[in-house]
């Protein structure tokens, strides 16, 4: 299985997981953004050009499944993935703590962008409240769950691409 197919399958699996399963798994009452975490992992591990397109595709899908305003997650995911690919060149290895910090920071950044876009589209939207009570705790949980997911993706990658290697 080539890497591009593997990445596409993984993102589609993440989208389906997000749409179908997320409402049943809500640690501390928060829905996790599995698609974002998978995209961050892929962008962090691989710097190929497919991932930003996958990010846009996944973002539009999430837009359609959450509020119907196409573009919010499409844009925010794209920005986060570009930043992730940029900062991934700074690191030559990753530790658990570093993984947690990266996931937390990038999730918070994604929250910042998507909330700002929502604020632009809706004047009454409470940006500050949502940033403090929704985006921040969600980013914290992403910081804990993300490194575990990273291990899972690495395992799947080794498993799926072994024959190719």
């Amino acid at each position: 299985m080539s890497q591009a197919i593997f990445q596409s399958v993984l993102v589609i699996f993440g989208i389906l997981f997000q749409v179908l399963i997320t409402s049943f798994i809500q640690p501390m009452g928060f829905k996790l953004n599995w698609v974002l975490m998978i995209l961050i992992i892929l962008a962090f591990l691989h710097g190929n050009r497919l991932i930003p397109f996958l990010a846009i595709f996944a973002g539009i899908w999430c837009d359609l499944m959450s509020h119907g305003m196409i573009g919010v997650y499409g844009i925010s995911f794209l920005f986060v993935i570009l930043v992730t690919q940029w900062i991934s060149t700074w690191f030559y290895s990753h530790t658990l703590l570093l993984g947690m910090i990266v996931f937390f920071t990038l999730s918070l950044f994604e929250g910042f962008i998507s909330l700002t876009l929502l604020k632009w589209s809706e004047e009454e939207f409470r940006w500050g409240w949502n940033f403090v009570y929704v985006a921040f705790p969600q980013a914290l949980i992403h910081g804990i769950v993300g490194p575990l997911l990273l291990k899972g993706v690495l395992f799947l990658e080794n498993f799926g691409l072994r024959s190719k290697a």
Binding site: V19, L20, S23, K31, N33, M65, S66, H67, N130, Q138
Partner: peptide, 13 residues
């Protein structure tokens, strides 16, 4: 049969 995938919007499918 479903709900919005984020924590901000109050949507149902």
């Amino acid at each position: 049969i479903g709900e919005s995938v984020d924590n901000i919007h109050q949507m149902r499918l």
